[in-house]
């Protein structure tokens, strides 16, 4: 039994994944920036473990094929096959979502909550933990990362594919962006 588990750990989860190359070693290359199990240790980099499979798959493929702008990930993903991207999406979607709640002053949280109710709640939920199907959870996601992502949606310099998200981000008042990111970043559950 121990051997079976080790074998799974070392070379991947399914026969199909093995045929495409080992998923575990491949997934481990992501840890350097996204943390072990996709739990990031630092603000500017998002946690990715436990996000919806379709979301992860779609976003990685859009970056790979230049349909969506990224700054670093697009270069990295061009070296991966579509099958490897599918396997990585599956692998990370099966990890546990671990929020990294970050403290923020009450006034910021209150301001963020109001803006979140108006702009984000429909899809991500009010605490970020009960999103629509296929929408990423953002409770305890890193605030700094969310702020940078909102900056990309709002700037007009980036090709962003999700129309509703683009609209919602652009509807936000400039002074609410940081507070909203920090509000969701503070949510532990």
């Amino acid at each position: 039994m121990y051997k079976t588990i080790l074998s799974l750990l070392l070379i991947g989860l399914t026969g199909a994944a093995q045929a495409r190359g080992d998923i575990e070693p491949l997934a481990r290359t992501c840890n350097g920036c996204h943390g072990v199990g996709g739990v990031s240790a630092s603000g500017p980099m998002p946690s990715i473990g436990g996000l919806p499979k379709d979301y992860l798959r779609q976003i990685m493929k859009q970056w790979k094929y230049g349909e969506r702008s990224a700054i670093t990930m697009d270069r990295i993903l061009k070296g991966f096959s579509d099958d490897q991207i599918d396997d990585l999406a599956e692998y990370f979607s099966k990890q546990r979502w671990v929020p990294s709640p970050q403290a923020a002053p009450d006034a910021v949280l209150a301001k963020g909550k109001t803006a979140a109710s108006a702009n984000c709640r429909d899809c991500h939920g009010l605490t970020g933990n009960d999103p629509d199907v296929g929408v990423p959870r953002i409770n305890g996601q890193w605030a700094r990362y969310m702020e940078l992502e909102l900056m990309k949606y709002r700037s007009g310099e980036f090709k962003m594919t999700h129309r509703k998200m683009k609209q919602a981000a652009r509807d936000m008042k400039p002074e609410d962006v940081s507070a909203t990111a920090r509000y969701y970043g503070a949510q532990s559950k």
Partner: peptide
Amino acid sequence: VPRIHRKIEAQYAAGWLNNLMADSFG
């Protein structure tokens, strides 16, 4: 390339270092 790319990558640099240290020594 728009200036915002460089701005965001300066932030990524700090995140990369922290994660790399956590992945290596954590």
